[in-house]
Amino acid sequence: MKDVREALMVARNTDGKLVRRPLSPHVQIYRWPISMALSILHRVTGVALGVGTLLLTWWLVAAATSDAAFATAQWFIGSALGLLLLFGWSFALFFHLYSGVRHLIWDAGVGFDSPTYNVTGWAVVIATGVSTVLVWVIGLAVW
């Protein structure tokens, strides 16, 4: 062993023999609890929303540039691909928002016990679903 961190992995068993400490199972081994899935989804939606800012930038630049540029941007957003991206964006935004609120509540030191953990986790999922559908029902009705 060349790395000092490796040295921490060496221990003696009850017979006094030097052994390598066992590792805890990795991600693939665990049965995924809701919080594990939501944790990674929070990061994935965060990065996705970052990519989505490109669409916001295009829309604002087009509006600032000319009628023709704005028409092109509006055409893309109204196309099947544009609407799909917009749907993904709204889902990611609502998820990241509700999940973010869950994080803020944790930051206040509340909701760390396991039953609450699961309840707030599912609440995030349900709130995201309801909000996304609701916004699209209203949006398409107005449009």
Binding site: M1, K2, V4, M9, V10, K17, L18
Partner: peptide, 10 residues
């Protein structure tokens, strides 16, 4: 058998 062959402390 695992062994440590360095002296540098953590």
């Amino acid at each position: 058998t695992p062994h440590v062959d360095m002296l540098r402390s953590p």
